[in-house]
Amino acid sequence: MTAIQSPPPRQDRPRLRTDPSGSWRAWPLRDRILLGLCWAAGLFLIFVAAAITLYMAFKGIQFLRPNLLWTRPEAAIDQSKSGGFLDPMLGTLLIIVGALAIAAPLGIATAVWLTEYGKPTWLARMVESGVEVIAGTPAIVLALFGLAFFSQGGLGFLSTTGEGGAVFGRSLLICCTVLSLEALPMIVGATREGLMSTPRHVREASYALGKTRAATIHRVLLPTARPNIATGCALGMGRVAGDTAVVLLLGGGTLQLAANGSIPGLNTLQGTGSTLTTYVYANSPSGEGGAPEKAYAAAFLLLLLVLALNWAVDRIARGDGRLGWIR
């Protein structure tokens, strides 16, 4: 048996790293240019975000008065008489809650069906493409479709109607319904991600205890995906809060929440109103242009709301040490 020869010792000394932090200096020119561009892109985004936030904060704090928060808006040329934005604020909250109340159950159910059942396959593919199409449809197109759909005579109970039975297809309820389509893809996507990241053996462990698929979904899979569902909902809320086109077309165009119908509570949903976004639009120079200062104040409030939602998303997504399985 021959002994295995070990290789001879190296004669050339390995190059030692001299300056770890400045190692890019030794890169080829092309790589250095690209590195510079990457830096520039990141810094540019920070600059834009900071510019928006600071400008809005500067303008907003300048014009935001506490009484704007609890006085109702009035249609008046004189700015001192045009009131605050209580109604748009309530409208925004109402629309967030309403759209989510429709989108969350629908989105979670869709995600569960797609991940856990998904048969027949062609139908699952169709549902997937359907969700993608909705996600890619511009808000204004959704709004136009909603207008056409809810102006049908038979759906008059949902919206404001004119004398003689004309259905206008405009109400906060219809806004919620159409806006729920904007939140839906995010909830479906996030829930699916949570369900799909649950290992197969965890599902099988539940089946192996004699549990049905329904019990497994209800007691094991949905609790596992809860952080993902919460993230999806928060992202959807951000979309809904920021939407202008749908509310502009379907909200009915009144600044105040104008109830319509006889059942208290429901009649607000059946009636018309505005949100912070449409309020900003109406008061900005591109709308009626009546009160740019109030538009700034409302825009600042909206920005705060969306930032708060983003912060919530971040907290939920990061989780407090979310526990996982040994892999």
Partner: peptide, 21 residues
């Protein structure tokens, strides 16, 4: 009945897989 069978013939898996509860 399969749910009954799996209660009578129980199983433990390769990876520890307690439920998130």
């Amino acid at each position: 009945e399969v749910t009954d069978l799996r209660r009578r013939v129980s199983m433990v898996f390769q990876q520890p897989n307690p439920f998130p509860m």
